[in-house]
Design a protein around this nucleic acid. Sequence first.
DNA 1: AGAGTCTTCCAAAGCGCTTTGGCTTTTTCG
DNA 2: CGAAAAAGCCAAAGCGCTTTGGAAGACTCT
Lengths: 340, 340
Amino acid sequence: MNLKQLAHMLALSQTTVSRALNGYPEVNEETRRRVMDAAKRHGYRPNPSARRLATGKTGMIGYVLPTGASVDIDPHFVEFLSGLGDYARSHELDLVLSPADADDQETTYRRIVANRQVDAVYISSPRPVDRRVALVNTLGIPFIVHGRSEGFDFDYAFTDIDNEGAFHEAARLLIQLGHRRLALINGDDRETFAIHRERGVRRALAASGLTLSERHVCSVDMTEENGYRATRRLLEEGDAPTAIACSSLIMALGVVRAVRDLGLSIPGDVSLIAHDDVFPWLRPENFSVPLSTTRSSIRLAGARVAERLAARISGLEEGARGEVWPVDLVVRGSVAGAPV
Amino acid sequence: MNLKQLAHMLALSQTTVSRALNGYPEVNEETRRRVMDAAKRHGYRPNPSARRLATGKTGMIGYVLPTGASVDIDPHFVEFLSGLGDYARSHELDLVLSPADADDQETTYRRIVANRQVDAVYISSPRPVDRRVALVNTLGIPFIVHGRSEGFDFDYAFTDIDNEGAFHEAARLLIQLGHRRLALINGDDRETFAIHRERGVRRALAASGLTLSERHVCSVDMTEENGYRATRRLLEEGDAPTAIACSSLIMALGVVRAVRDLGLSIPGDVSLIAHDDVFPWLRPENFSVPLSTTRSSIRLAGARVAERLAARISGLEEGARGEVWPVDLVVRGSVAGAPV
DNA sequence: AGAGTCTTCCAAAGCGCTTTGGCTTTTTCG
DNA sequence: CGAAAAAGCCAAAGCGCTTTGGAAGACTCT
């Protein structure tokens, strides 16, 4: 059943039927009702391919997925996706993942924009002065950044959490508890979130006249194994920290394992605070010693990004508003006063 | 730059240019070269929207993503996606995720087929007599099932691992080590993979005249917490098992924690074998006691599914061939002889 | 040489929708 | 009451590609 047939059986022109269906004003309300009624009755659904050829609108949002044999997709992605998908569903939006060579995403961005394959895109895990952000900005496609990039001569729309504030609070708590030597086991420090977290820790330390030793900050891929290794190294050297801030729950697994392997205990010998993105399958309260966390649901962020993308597509949102969500500090058993 | 313009500047018809570009035989090789050359020089790329309107081909593969506030996307998904994306990239295929109400995926499947939104789809986490499989089969869109469904009066194409064989081998090993009371901490037993794994364990036990007590098999969502709870229950009851087979590494984290909480040890009191889908961020050899596993890279499966989808789209693969991959049994420190 | 066969190319008809420009008919208002 | 404005509808022109049905010229064969 296509427009032509529907128009014919209603004894109307395609124009009128099309307009009736798409809510244009220049059609009699009574006629509109007839049309919509007939459309529903016959299960008419406009052919999206035809529609996009005519309008350029696709009803899809895009994400360029970096791939490669040695490229691992972050497990956070799946939680983000849950939120994004949940919102997208209610708005009949589909998400198209365009796999790209991790070292050449530009080609793919250019392709999906030139081909008008999606109405909007989002960008995640941005770095400062992220090339992708600059690119999509000049390409002129609506976009939202999940996270933050910095150092451009233009503004853009983003949704981020207050990473600096979160780790500032975490570090401040540890300092209040008497810790003087903090360590930070961070994610890839080329990404903005990691930079912000480190900055938060440093700021808290500085406020008490302390500093973060270079040897006490690690930047690694956020795997269990790297959490373990980093912790071993930190605790086996002289001048070992008495408290650790850690950028992910998965790494925290490794931290806990390392502490135990060394015959030490949490929080007796080492206090630990980790960032929790809220996974259904790994919860900080269920660690052998319940983990204190800075908590922010990445799933909600996904839903929010989808919402904003939808708003931008339909012209409801404009401008370059960035929003920064506060992060909860949840204190559980893994922190205690510094050992004497 | 569109076909018309390109044709005009070559003083050829659109027909000829189109055919030259698409490799049709009825065009002079010399002409073809001229055309391809000009196309490249001017950066001509056919408009996909127009092409799909004309041909119905989209260059995209589809996945219906079950969503909902209480629906969690499995973290395995992201690894599968890594493989899928890696292959898809090399073939200029995009993946479209169509979010659907988890309780009504049929509508979405019908939509993406009726609208010709994708050239093929894949289905994951199938159950026996899975409605989705029956549906896409009747809808007539090319598809591959990742995993297996059963009990249809038709055949279909799937890529699965030998779950039954894997758990059969695992159980057999444990039995050989003298274990008599095995337990299985399984995933959702409405899904085929879980059913097969249980069957494998039962078969191994039966071969030695043993049985799997109903109280010793759990079917739960594969979270750390559920692994913990199941293990506590198993080990605190009378008639506790001396060996556990576990369907996921994430649950195994909970198993390990529970065993420790009870003051028991692995493998001294309990042997443990888990299934490993090969995550970069959590590796069995890095558990506090290195974990024996049945191992199969879900990432490779993703790549394979993409490969087969591409083959089916281009007509290179036909028929309903199912393939079952063998699973490695990797023995590490978490298994030992049964306690006396 | 004439008939038949390839080879190579083209004009035009879709694919199914939106949108422009215009044409009636009805309503409004001085 | 008549002119101007508004309402309601339509025919047709795109959107940019593929594909059908020829047609012209070159080649083969008897």
